[in-house]
């Protein structure tokens, strides 16, 4: 039994508020578990070696690279992916709204990682400076935008979130 558990095991975690349980191979990355086992394909794999940041998700509220965690390590954790950011199917989160308004995404492949990274950050730093935002997204690569629209969107979203309900 213990030998079995060293090769595959059932993982229980809460993803975007929903309890999930699935049998996974121990070498499966958290990113592949989310994408392939749960069908949450919003989390993107851009490099699989921890540099590009596209796969960033929140694990117990902390932004982490899901390509650098094993699915089995998420046992008992609460995971938030990009699919869990908007409050409902109609409304977008203020950060998402600001991204659209400022053209902070073009191809959109890096966007999920940007959003999750910034969500954790804005929780901690509600009134950031542009320079603080640049530093916090320096671990998220984007080839399309030149980043400055993302900084502008984040500044605006922060203001909305501070003032909003």
């Amino acid at each position: 039994m213990s030998e079995d558990r060293s090769l595959a095991r059932r993982v229980n975690c809460v993803v975007n508020g929903t309890a999930q349980a699935a049998e996974v191979s121990v070498r499966r990355t958290l990113a592949d578990y989310l994408r392939q086992d749960l069908g949450l394909t919003g989390t993107h794999l851009g490099c699989e070696h921890g540099v590009c940041g596209a796969c960033t998700v929140l694990v117990d509220g902390r932004a982490v690279r899901s390509c650098l965690m094993l699915a089995v390590q998420a046992e008992g954790c609460a995971v938030t992916t990009v699919e869990g950011i908007a409050p409902d199917v109609v409304t977008l989160h203020p950060l998402q709204t600001a991204f659209a308004k400022h053209h902070a995404l073009q191809c959109g492949f890096c966007t999920p990682g940007m959003l999750t990274t910034l969500l954790e950050f804005l929780e901690e730093v509600p009134a950031p400076t542009a320079e603080e935002i640049r530093i916090v997204i320096s671990g998220n690569l984007c080839r399309c935008t030149g980043y400055e629209p993302i900084v502008a969107a984040t500044l605006e979203a922060a203001a909305v979130m501070r003032g909003g309900a």
């Binding site: 919003g42 990009v82 908007a86 995404l105």
Partner: peptide, 18 residues
């Protein structure tokens, strides 16, 4: 507003690996 944005922002877009 861009037509592309809502699905991309929600993680509901469809890239080839999806």
């Amino acid at each position: 507003p861009r037509l592309e944005d809502p699905p991309l922002l929600r993680g509901r877009a469809r890239f080839v690996d999806d």
